[in-house]
């Protein structure tokens, strides 16, 4: 199968394989942009992979006071889980431990309730109110119900429930095959910045980049996943290596989105930005990870992403 070329960089004619996930979005607000970001960063910490962390989470956008329900600075975060039950468990733990505790914070649903993709509602404030030990009060404002839990800086205000999103997808990805670590990392950073500019998509790994791409299963009994040896440069030359001789480093980005369209848009933005900058940064090729197409029902073919969005 002939490879594709974008901005002079080879793009393998393959696809990223992604999965249906349960997802929700929150708007976290605080007195200052810094404290909103602290709450969001804390809540989305240790959320790189749903297998090991229980959830995948990240910051989707920083919001100005004009964009938030309470007129304060805010941050929109996305949270993904295997299913609605697992997502709810992680939602309560993360809001309860990381946002309730953050000074001046408040929590709102990050998806409009009249959005056509709204799914099952997850009780959030209605569960966290029990921290108020019977002193919490509910307040309905403009058709939405909030819980006001007394805390030591005043009140923690949290929306009673937040909606899940139907059609959320996790696992969109791109792999950057480069020559030198520093330059390839720069390519990945450029790709991350482009993907993060796309609404409704997050990149849950550190800085949006993962250097330890994995394959399903392992030689060690009981391991669910293990290193993606085909793309490890120190294993070049062995049977099964997918790397040409000139590639000495591979970095990956992983994208979760509230819809297949948002994942595709983020992958497209990352593919174009990375190949555009990659010529001067020693980028050899861009490819994507899949499991043969048998595990996830969403296949993002790089061939389809090379063209500009329709």
């Amino acid at each position: 199968m002939p490879d594709l070329i974008l901005h002079g960089i080879r793009v393998e004619d393959t696809f990223a394989e992604a999965f249906d996930m349960a997802a929700t979005a929150l708007v976290l607000t605080a007195e200052t942009p810094e404290w909103a970001l602290i709450a969001a960063t804390t809540m989305t910490g240790f959320a790189t992979s749903v297998i090991g962390c229980g959830a995948e989470a990240g910051i989707d956008a920083v919001l100005s006071p004009d964009e938030t329900p309470d007129g304060r600075p805010g941050v929109r975060v996305l949270l993904f889980g295997f299913d609605a039950g697992g997502l709810k468990d992680q939602l309560l733990r993360r809001v309860g431990q990381c946002v309730l505790t953050s000074p001046g914070s408040a929590v709102f649903a990050g998806i409009a309730w009249d959005d056509p993709n709204v799914g099952k509602a997850l009780k959030l404030g209605g569960a966290i109110r029990y921290f108020g030990d019977g002193f919490a009060t509910a307040k309905r404002v403009a058709g939405r119900r909030y819980w006001r839990t007394p805390v030591m800086d005043g009140e923690f205000l949290c929306e009673h429930s937040v909606p899940t999103v139907g059609g959320a997808v996790g696992g969109g990805n791109l792999l950057f095959l480069g020559r030198r670590f520093a330059e390839t990392l720069r390519v990945a950073e450029i790709a991350v910045a482009a993907a993060r500019a796309v609404p409704d998509a997050i990149l849950p790994f550190p800085g949006g980049v993962v250097r330890s791409g994995s394959k399903v299963g392992a030689r060690t009994k009981g391991m669910m996943a293990s290193t993606n040896d085909a793309y490890c440069p120190t294993l070049k030359g062995r049977a099964g290596s997918a790397l040409p001789p000139e590639v000495d480093v591979v970095l990956e980005i992983v994208i979760d989105g509230l819809s297949a369209g948002s994942v595709a848009a983020a992958m497209r933005a990352a593919l174009h930005a990375s190949t555009k900058a990659g010529g001067e940064l020693g980028l050899v090729a861009v490819t994507a990870g899949n499991y043969g197409g048998n595990l996830g029902r969403h296949h993002f073919h790089l061939r389809d992403l090379i063209g500009e969005a329709a």
Partner: peptide
Amino acid sequence: RQDLVVLRLLAKS
């Protein structure tokens, strides 16, 4: 005196 978020929501509504 506390600057409560609920008052901001009420004011906006």
